Amino acid sequence: MKPAPLRLKKDQERRLLAGHAWIYSNEVDTAATPLKGLEPGQAVEVFSQRGRWLGHGYVNPHSLLCARLLSRDRAHPLGPSLLVQRIQAALGLRRRIYPQPFYRLVHGEGDGLPGLVVDRYGDLLAVQVTTAGMQRALPAVIAALEQVVRPQRIVLRNDTAVRAQEGLEQGIDWVLGEDPGEIELTEDGLRFGVAPGSGQKTGWFFDQADNRLALKRLAAPRRALDVCCYLGAWGLRAADAGAESVTFVDSSAAALDQVRANAARNGLEQRIQCRQGDAFETLRALREEEARFDLVILDPPAFIKRRKDEAEGTRAYQRLNRLGLALLEPGGMLVTASCSFHMERNVFLHTVQGAAQRTGHTLQLLLAGTQGPDHPVHPAIVETAYLKTFFLRSLPV
């Protein structure tokens, strides 16, 4: 089917010409090209008001973010050739960087494939499709992945809530091979059991891998606390670096069972203890118990999922950091993270500093980390730079 034209209002092409890939419904000249006449996921060619061709993309007339560009080459629309080319380029980058095949293979706009995320676990690929346009192209996506990567298993992890905003159904589907259950992943010598078919997101958080490696260089803890620990990647890294005791906190009993299994897998089971419960309530309980730690790790889920949640989410980040800092020994290290792209880096740092003032800590910022290179940032799309991780030392009294 020939792509439909999508014409923009006057001067609305400026952001696209600067490299951005998103088009909002209020930027479209609906008198010239009515959105109501288009189907979700339909291919479009985008034009300026004066008729300048801007790129190939796809549309969803039911979404405020109604279109995304994929190609600025008129001879190269979304199709098998483009998908193979982009996935080959993504794989080439990862192969240069990572000695083992555990990484994010495709990171949406950062790899020129908006609406597509692919995490790699050896010969298993976990695929997330978050837009109607990429959903419509899914058969070609799977074919391209099989051609370029040659995996043994592919699971569609389309159980993310963001699909509802695009009018897409949610679910998990194995389109190649069968669910192997738990598989083993290695990260800098540590071994972890993960379940790509059932774990959070796609089973593992590759975006923090480089920051976890930095923990070995910057912290030498005796007593560590890992809050919102999931499978224990941060805390077990601290134990491997020499921590005598690591306390893991998570609301999920299943996650804590996996922490124990991962600790045993690495011979660290004697150094850990687990506490199930809400992060805020558990931190308050630890404060009442007068517990103290010289390393506190706070890596919560996003508190700000939408712009309208910004004020409430900012308060949640300050409260979490205030409770964490209340347990930190002078001279200790706070590792705190936000994966909310709506929270700007400087705002997050200011929020943590406010928490430090409330708890009487004077902080030094030692390292400001971001997502690893398998989560590339599109320079023109600030929303792709979502992860902020700060390593902060509390100055001794």
Rank of each mutant, 00 (worst) to 15 (best):
F192Q: 05
A220T: 00
P180N: 07
Y230S: 12
F192A: 04
A238N: 09
D159T: 01
G189H: 07
G189T: 02
A239N: 12
V194P: 03
D173L: 14
W174V: 08
R191M: 12
R223Q: 12
Y230V: 01
G193D: 13
G193H: 14
L231W: 09
V227S: 08
E184L: 07
L190S: 02
L213R: 15
A238P: 08
A238I: 03
G199E: 05
E178Q: 14
R153P: 01
P151L: 04
A209Q: 14
S198T: 12
V149Q: 10
E178A: 14
Q165I: 02
Q200Y: 14
R217F: 01
W204T: 05
K216H: 15
V148M: 07
R157N: 10
K216V: 05
L145C: 06
A195N: 14
P180T: 08
L225D: 00
P221F: 01
F205K: 08
T160K: 14
D210M: 10
D240N: 13
A144V: 07
K201N: 12
R222W: 02
W204H: 13
G232D: 09
T202R: 05
I183G: 08
T160P: 05
A195F: 13
L225Q: 00
A214G: 00
A144M: 03
V227Y: 05
D179K: 09
E187H: 06
A219N: 01
L185I: 08
S198L: 12
A238V: 02
R212P: 06
L176M: 13
L215H: 11
G167D: 08
G203Q: 08
E169N: 14
P151V: 01
W204K: 04
R237G: 12
L185G: 00
P196Y: 09
I154P: 05
L176D: 02
L145Q: 00
L185V: 11
Y230T: 03
E187D: 11
V149D: 07
P151A: 07
Q170M: 14
V175T: 09
I183P: 02
P221R: 02
E182G: 08
T160D: 14
D210S: 15
P196C: 10
E169M: 11
E178M: 11
L231H: 13
C228V: 07
E187L: 04
Y230E: 09
V148G: 04
W204V: 04
L156Y: 00
W234D: 10
V149A: 03
I183H: 01
S198Q: 14
F205C: 09
Q152L: 06
P196Q: 10
R237Y: 10
V155A: 09
K201D: 11
E166C: 02
T202E: 06
W174R: 10
V175H: 10
D179G: 09
I172R: 14
L185C: 06
D188E: 15
P196T: 03
